[in-house]
Design a binder for these strands. Structure first.
Lengths: 173, 173
DNA sequence: GCCCTTATTGATACAATATATCATTTCGAT
DNA sequence: ATCGAAATGATATATTGTATCAATAAGGGC
């Protein structure tokens, strides 16, 4: 559908319906736990949900401003911080962007797979990776509490469509 | 950045001697491969070596300027880029900083373990983690070419010294 | 050594990302 | 209705990272 340019695939991510339901649950939970589900926080979630993919803080800001011109970077970052703490939003360090968690029910150490061609992000929760990481930590005497695992490559569909993505990089960080 | 803050442990990392030797090897290799080992690039390596830990680009800049006041951010980033491509320097996304690779002999997908108390960074090359990541990629149809694995926690010595580091974070990105 | 080509640097400007501060507003409980 | 805590708005600024382009330095062939 596009030329060369990676479209973001809205609604590609595990259906929006169930996410919405999950977010309603969140609302209840918020109240129970005494934190507030405010307009701004809601707006950030809606924007991410509508996007269906990752957005940088300032892309998010731009979208929010269409509705409420008073939004500021600080506000966006505060809302994002809030949701990250709640485990509902993930930060992608590789791309300096933010994305909805696909399983906001419970916090978890996850892995993010990023397609460098189409920008799609898939969230995984792979026991094998986590276990290996924890073992590694133990071996080196660490007690770990934060796992940042971002794996970048080319997804199946993109390879099939010949978007080879031969960037010449060696397989290193 | 202030007190309370983790001192960096220079010379804690796998002895500087062997790194120096490795860097000499690099010099030769550079020549062989036709790229240039210039003053600035050398300076960046020396600064990282002297630090014995991670430095942000601007901390690095500050140090370089003590010797040559004409250094600029662009210059520092260019040198860092050069070394990262060569697999000699790693970027820590968690902390926006840069650190010498401990095994610059060959490029490799590695894992970085970061102690949130003392700031120490240990570089690992764990087959288990890599294998699990690759398997995960395959399962999801990805061909991966970049592994970002940064594990944060508290190292043994810090735990022993009671720096518990109870930050209250849940085990999530 | 000298010239030539090309990679690298220096200088400047600027873009993108993120946080600090503080007065004001909102929310929920009393 | 009032109070206190939490969140926001507004503003400013810090931090991190790039773009551009003329000037310079490094290595290869003569």
């Amino acid at each position: 559908m596009s030329d060369t340019v990676p479209m973001r695939r809205a609604a590609q991510r595990p259906d929006a319906e169930s996410q919405l339901r999950a977010l309603e649950r969140l609302e209840t939970e918020c109240r129970v736990r005494g934190c507030r589900l405010t307009r701004q926080r809601r707006a950030v979630l809606r924007a991410l949900l509508a996007e269906g993919g990752a957005l940088s803080a300032y892309e998010l800001l731009e979208r929010l401003r269409r509705v409420d011109s008073r939004c500021t970077p600080a506000g966006v970052y505060r809302a994002l911080e809030f949701w990250m703490t709640a485990g509902v939003v993930h930060r992608l360090q590789s791309t300096r962007s933010f994305i909805l968690c696909e399983h906001p029910e419970a916090p978890h150490p996850g892995q993010l797979l990023i397609c460098r061609e189409c920008g799609q992000v898939i969230e995984a929760e792979d026991k094998g990776v986590v276990a290996a990481a924890i073992r590694l930590g133990e071996r080196l005497g660490f007690v770990l509490d934060r796992h940042l695992v971002e794996l970048t490559g080319v997804c199946g569909p993109c390879r099939a469509q010949g978007r080879a993505g031969d960037s010449g990089r060696s397989p290193t960080t």
